[in-house]
Design a binder for these strands. Sequence first.
DNA 1: CGATGCCCCTGTATGC
DNA 2: TGCATACAGGGGCATC
Length: 274
Amino acid sequence: MPELPEVETIRQDMIKKVKGKKIVNVDLRNPKNIKIPSSVEFKRGIEGKVIQDIKRKGKYLILILDSRDLLIFHLKLTGRLLFFPPEKKEPDYTRIVFIFSDNTRLFFADIRGFADVYLLPPEKIDTIPAIKNMGPEPLSSEFTLEKFKKILKGKKGKIKPLLMDQTVIAGVGNIYSQESLYRAGIHPERSVSRLKDEEIEAIYRSLVEVLKEAIRYRGSSVDAYLDLNGKEGDYVPRLKVYGREGENCLRCGSPIKKKKIGGRGTYFCERCQK
DNA sequence: CGATGCCCCTGTATGC
DNA sequence: TGCATACAGGGGCATC
C-alpha cells in the first residue's frame, strides 16, 4: 500500500536509476490502467522520449519527459514500479514495460489493477481531480503547525479519516495516519472539532516525524509494496500499532484493538490513545 | 454541497 | 485437505 514514504522512496531511487534514460519502446501488455490518453497515443507519446526528472505529489509519482509531457502513476493498493536488469526474470503481473536505449527496463506491474497511469501535458495536470484538489505536502516548508491548525479548524468528523483525506493533507494513508495518532496518544475516533491545541500540535509533530522516519527506512512493505529494486521496505518492524491486533501495546502492555473507522481497518491502543 | 457507502479486483485468510 | 466465501483497500462516483 504505497503512501507518501513509499512513493518518495521510489522517486529517490528513480532519480538514481532511470533519470536521463531514453525510453525506446513501450510494451503494453495490459493497457487497462492507462486512464489518459488512448493506449496508441500513450505509446506514441512516450517512445523516443528522455526522462528528465521525477517528482512526487502526494501519492502520485510524476515522470517529466523531454517532450514536457508528464507520465504519472498512482500505484493505489498493489501497483509496483520495478527497475530490473535485462538478465533478471521479469516481474509477475507486468502490465507495461518501458524499455530504455541501454536495454534496461522499467516494469509497471499491478496485481489488482487499481493503479492509474496518465500521460498529460503539464498544463493539463489539473484534469486529475485528486491532484487539483490536493492538500499541502506534509513535509514541505509550507506545512507549518499554524497551517495545520487552520486546516483542521471548522472540520467535522473523526480525526483518522480526516488525516487520510487527500484534500486535507497529501500522501497520508491508512498506515501512517494510525501510526501518527498512536505516537500522539490520540484516539482515531476523536472528533476534530474537540481537539485541544496541544493535541493538534502532538498530531502535527507525530505525523511529520513518522513520515520522515518511514522514508529513512524506505517505507513499509504491507500488502504488495516493493521498492524499485523489488526489495521490501524496512519500516514494518518499526510500526507501533498497524497490523498488531491482539498484541501488547509497546507503551502500556494492553492489547491493541482493531475497529473499522471511516470504512477502514484501524488499529489503536484504548489505554494510550485518548 | 457534504457525508456515506458501494465499487473496481484478486490474493490471502477464515470457516466448515 | 479442499473448497467456498469473506475480507482487504485508494479514490471515483452515486446517492441521500
